[in-house]
Computed example of a mutant assay.
Amino acid sequence: MLKKTFTALVLGSALFAGQAMAADYTIDKKGQHAFVNFKISHLGYSWLWGRFNDFDGTFSFDAEQPEASKVEVTLQTASVDSNHAERDKHLRSEDFLNVSEHPTATFKSTSVRSTGEGTADITGDLTLNGVTKPVVITAKFIGEGKDPWGGYRAGFEGTTTLQLKDFDIKMDLGPASQSVDLIISVEGVRQ
């Protein structure tokens, strides 16, 4: 009887050891250790930079099995901030983000593919301006570990390029301004 119990424990332990043990994290918006930035060419003459100030999200991450990771983010489109009040008003209008009709944008991952040591492609559905399209975020693991307040954190950065027309953005500022680069940096607190 003891031998059967021991065998069952060993087999059970081996079975569970092979499963992904992803930890769940909440993006640290409160401590402002997360950013969703963008840049777009202004007529081909310079870069216009901006960010979204209000967003939140979660991710699951297992360094041993990054393919088991997941990401979900919701941002408030009216929080767009390009450091210019009149331009921000225009960005909130129907010409661009149409925030009165679409107050949120969301990203929900559908797969994660490891591309090297600490890098991955995160594929997911982005809903922006009422349009949902698959996008790929090129992600890089920054680091993880204990923080000074007794928590545990993990951080990532990622980039992707969006074609404005894919998300029914009507304003046309010429051929140099047809796409926008998103630059994302997040630090999450393990739950």
Results as ranks from 00 to 15, higher is better:
136 V>Y: 07
112 V>Y: 12
32 Q>K: 14
140 K>M: 04
84 H>Q: 08
88 D>H: 07
168 D>C: 02
115 T>Y: 11
78 A>D: 13
23 A>E: 13
67 E>C: 05
157 E>I: 12
73 V>Q: 02
50 G>D: 06
44 G>Q: 02
38 F>A: 04
180 V>C: 05
185 S>E: 15
124 G>R: 01
152 Y>V: 00
75 L>I: 07
62 D>E: 07
95 D>T: 04
92 R>A: 07
108 K>L: 07
49 W>D: 10
22 A>I: 02
107 F>H: 03
46 S>E: 01
70 K>C: 02
85 A>P: 14
16 F>H: 01
181 D>E: 14
132 T>M: 11
29 K>C: 02
67 E>G: 15
18 G>P: 00
183 I>H: 10
104 T>C: 01
167 F>V: 01
53 N>A: 14
138 T>N: 14
100 S>H: 10
47 W>K: 08
90 H>C: 01
33 H>W: 02
133 K>M: 03
113 R>A: 15
3 K>N: 09
9 L>N: 05
123 T>A: 08
5 T>G: 06
99 V>D: 08
134 P>Q: 05
76 Q>Y: 10
156 F>N: 09
65 Q>F: 07
87 R>F: 11
108 K>H: 10
54 D>H: 13
3 K>Y: 13
47 W>P: 00
149 W>E: 06
185 S>V: 11
156 F>D: 09
89 K>S: 12
16 F>A: 06
183 I>R: 09
8 A>C: 03
165 K>R: 13
163 Q>M: 12
31 G>H: 10
148 P>S: 01
165 K>N: 11
135 V>Q: 08
89 K>M: 03
69 S>P: 12
164 L>Y: 09
1 M>A: 14
24 D>Q: 13
44 G>I: 01
76 Q>E: 12
169 I>K: 05
38 F>L: 06
187 E>Y: 10
168 D>S: 14
152 Y>A: 06
19 Q>D: 00
19 Q>W: 11
110 T>V: 02
119 T>V: 09
59 F>K: 00
91 L>Y: 03
65 Q>N: 15
138 T>K: 15
110 T>R: 00
68 A>C: 02
184 I>P: 05
95 D>Y: 08
119 T>L: 09
11 L>W: 05
